[in-house]
Each structure stands twice: as C-alpha cells, then as structure tokens.
C-alpha cells in the first residue's frame, strides 16, 4: 500500500515536469503595470522640484548653486519605486521604467544627477510660505539640500542679503 502511494507520488512528480525558471539565462517579461527604477528625462525637466517635495523617501535632493543653476540629485538608494514623483511631474519628465536589475556593489551607481538651467521668475519669485508676509518678502526661495551627506533640509531659510539685487529696493533685515 505504502509502496503504491510512493509510486503514485513519483508519477505525479514526473507529470508536473520542470517548473524552475532558468533566470539569468532566460527572463520572463514583467507585468505591464510593474514599476521599476524611475528614469529622469533631463530634456523635459523644468526643475520645479515637485518630485522632491512629494517623494515619501526624501530621495530627490535639490541644490541651488545660484539663481540660474539648480542641481537635482536622485539618490536611488532608498527609493521605494512608488511612482509618486512620476505622478506629480507636470512635464512627464519621469518615467517608471521596467528596470529592476539594479544590483550593484557600489551604491553610487544608481544615482542620477541633473544640472539644470533655471530662468529668473518675472514675478516676485518668493512662492514659499513664511510666518508673516514681511518675512516672505525677504525669502529667496532657494533650496540647499545636503548633497554630501544625502540629507533633505526640511525648510530652506535663505534670505536676501543687505545688498539687494535691485539697487533702489532696500529691504530691512532684522
């Protein structure tokens, strides 16, 4: 009896055939809505930093070198591939690719860095909220995230200097 059941088991096993996917040699296509690594299209990006403000992992850092140049750095290391950055991007500059083979021996390999030219806003250029309207007027709106230590600075507090850019406007600083 027990021998018979063992034979039956063997037949079942033979019928099932091979199920193993010979992975590195042969790949299987990912599901169509799979989200892999986000890829930045620098030609489309306008540098609005919407992706950086909405990333739950604070993964995209923004650093303003000066009024005209903004650095956008995607670290890749704590990205959860949630796709939120691609959703909020007004220019559709981020695509969630199907790349998942990102294994590497140096973590710097998965970062993407964009140096973007920015135009000066023709309006007040101070679209950041501050406690009082007076303080808001003094704000430059620059972002200085810590690129070296890969940290996101929660709130930028860069104020205009005493020698304002426009000569005839004197802004009083406290």
């Amino acid at each position: 009896m027990s021998l018979l059941s063992k034979l039956k088991e063997a037949v079942v096993c033979l019928k099932a055939g091979r199920v193993t996917l010979p992975y590195p040699a042969q790949t299987q296509p990912v599901p169509p809505r799979f989200r892999g690594r986000p890829i930045f299209d620098a030609a489309k990006c306008i540098g609005c930093a919407g992706c950086a403000n909405n990333c739950p992992a604070r993964e995209i850092l923004v650093f303003d070198v000066c009024q005209e140049v903004r650095i956008l750095k995607y670290l890749g290391r704590r990205c959860t591939y949630c796709g939120r950055c691609a959703d909020v991007c007004p220019e559709k500059a981020i695509t969630m690719s199907h790349e998942f083979e990102n294994a590497t021996n140096s973590i710097g390999d998965i970062q993407q860095k964009l140096d973007l030219f920015m135009s000066t806003c023709q309006r007040c250029g101070r679209c950041f909220k501050e406690p009082s309207p007076l303080e808001q007027l003094k704000l430059k709106g620059y972002r200085f995230d810590d690129l070296a230590n890969e940290r996101w600075i929660f709130r930028s507090k860069a104020y205009l200097t005493e020698e304002a850019a426009v000569d005839d406007v004197k802004i009083e600083l406290d």
Partner: peptide, 13 residues
C-alpha cells in the same frame, strides 16, 4: 552589473 551613475549637464540655456 547593468547600472552606472547618470549625470546630465546642460551646456546652453
């Protein structure tokens, strides 16, 4: 490995 760091620099406004 398939990954390499990407850096993009604009040279012209």
């Amino acid at each position: 490995k398939k990954t390499a760091p990407v850096q993009f620099k604009q040279t012209e406004l």
